[in-house]
Design a binder for these strands. Sequence first.
DNA 1: CGCCCGGTTTGACACGTTCCAAGCCTGCCC
DNA 2: GGGCAGGCTTGGAACGTGTCAAACCGGGCG
Lengths: 344, 344
Amino acid sequence: MNAPVSIRDVAAHAGVSVGTVSNVLNRPEIVARATRDRVQAAIKALGFVRNESARQLRAGRSRTIGLVVLDVANPFFTDVARGVEDEASTSGLAVILCNTDEQLEKEERYLELLEEHRVQGILITPVADAERRLVALQQRGTPVILVDSRSPAGSQCSVAVDDVLGGEAAMAHLVETGHERIAYVGGPPSLRQVTDRLDGARRALQRAGGAVSDLRVIETGALNVAAGQRAGAEIAGLDPRERPTAAFCANDLVALGLLQEMTRRRIRVPDELAIVGYDDIEFAAAAAVPLSSVRQPRQELGRMAAQLLLEEALSTDGHQHRQVTFKPELEIRQSSLPGQVPGR
Amino acid sequence: MNAPVSIRDVAAHAGVSVGTVSNVLNRPEIVARATRDRVQAAIKALGFVRNESARQLRAGRSRTIGLVVLDVANPFFTDVARGVEDEASTSGLAVILCNTDEQLEKEERYLELLEEHRVQGILITPVADAERRLVALQQRGTPVILVDSRSPAGSQCSVAVDDVLGGEAAMAHLVETGHERIAYVGGPPSLRQVTDRLDGARRALQRAGGAVSDLRVIETGALNVAAGQRAGAEIAGLDPRERPTAAFCANDLVALGLLQEMTRRRIRVPDELAIVGYDDIEFAAAAAVPLSSVRQPRQELGRMAAQLLLEEALSTDGHQHRQVTFKPELEIRQSSLPGQVPGR
DNA sequence: CGCCCGGTTTGACACGTTCCAAGCCTGCCC
DNA sequence: GGGCAGGCTTGGAACGTGTCAAACCGGGCG
């Protein structure tokens, strides 16, 4: 609409050279007081705004980092995003948020886009094993940090919470409170989180001996509320004598969906079905029946990921990849405590 | 780490000119089959990746849009973001997500950053009245669309839901179910959403005649769960004979916090305190006591905002600003239905 | 008077792309 | 054979900034 004003216009207006204006912008201390004031006045008068693209072109890298998550609507990821954004903004970096919806295709599109943007680096929770693509990305010069995930080959930095441990704690709790028919609800199995938590659960069962006859795995297509509701319908449809008496869900959204469906069908929680979720999102404690859940330091996860990225991006010489692992914590609430009066 | 490969390298490798490579990239149909194949092979062999900054520099604008929200952790905004992102990605645009935390200072920093990035446009829910700054931004050439907000002067496009209507519906419902001492819980009053919903509530009271003696306004510092809990403590502290029997909360996070605090203090909802929230986020229905709430078409809001932005960005000649308003809908659930047995 | 010095300022180039006018072929028609 | 059209390709000029060596200037010193 309006003729864009460039550094050259400012220079003309202030009666100095282009280089001087650039200096005022980037190293104001080396330019004489009087000149500096004159240039700054010109900038204000003309409404000059730096052109970030041009800076980037010159610098070779943009002042931006990419964050690729599985589902923006999941509070787990928004909390992580919060942490990332906090950390990034202290360094003057912007965050490009990309939502893959757990679709490989969208993930690929976004990775391409971020690489073209020459972002400082990419924080990603991959949809599936992405080792090859990510390594290629790194070799071409874009640092990659895995979030809530880990590279088996150690070829990236990563920040994660020990999901096996979390799964084990959740399952051990259910076994201890006497359940024998237990279900694990989650999917798709391509997600590391889903399989790790299941592995942890299995480990708890082994450790407990043979008391639990079978762990029924109910696979969901995604980790959201709707998937939880569908799983709920499936469980409710089972013969009550064979129906699991407890369910461990791969995340809280699934657990809340499951809980909602149980409530709708008047199957009592926790008496007829105990539920344990994962993530301990803010809404878990406020659920119809306060939800037991495995808590993760979400915001911390995001901050740490951003820190690792900055560390790697700034290091000129050989950078050592670091794998940071946090410990989860089981928060027991009413949804898995039989015998308690559910009302207030 | 690795020498970046440019279009020039590709040209050399394929034995063609730079211009031809550019054509292969942008208008493949005009270059001869054989040449095209050769160039594409070179691109693959060298691992060439377009440099978006350079494209932008030439084009004058980046292929990015800015989304500035009050709180990423609020599901309302993540749903809006979802809609924006969907729409943007169909046009190959990336979304830069900025979280202001309702702080004017952060908002200013982000607006500056986005302008420097020469984004296609900015979608924003402003912290406070930002008319002046936004108009300046537009005059310098960056389109601005207000989200869940409206410009009194009509100087921007906007997408909003009629909050006065929503507030009126919620309050009318509480009055109809016989409440006489009602509280409005929300803040800060600098947020248009907060005041509009309150205005609507007041209008409902007027329309109902004088049955309701007073509307007690409990001001919160922000619209999140913690603020709701604090408000809950305040309400619980009142003499039960004077205590409101119903609360209309400015959003669901506040309502959930309030509900949580009531549960903790064994004040029964809805019998001793009926609660109505706003936004109808996914978790409202799954709350301890399913929450009555005013539903907004959140994702739709985001999509429409992005569409308006594209419309404005693409229009070369005089663009007419449009103000789109959606209608909210009251969803009545158990939290405001006295006399019903709260259990299952 | 010539020289050098430190503090400022200048000018030109590089970054990687897109765009466009101009050039080069090849084949066809008269 | 000359001319022409049409299909491809080329070369170079931008775009706005950061950087850096070189120029400038006034003053102090020998």
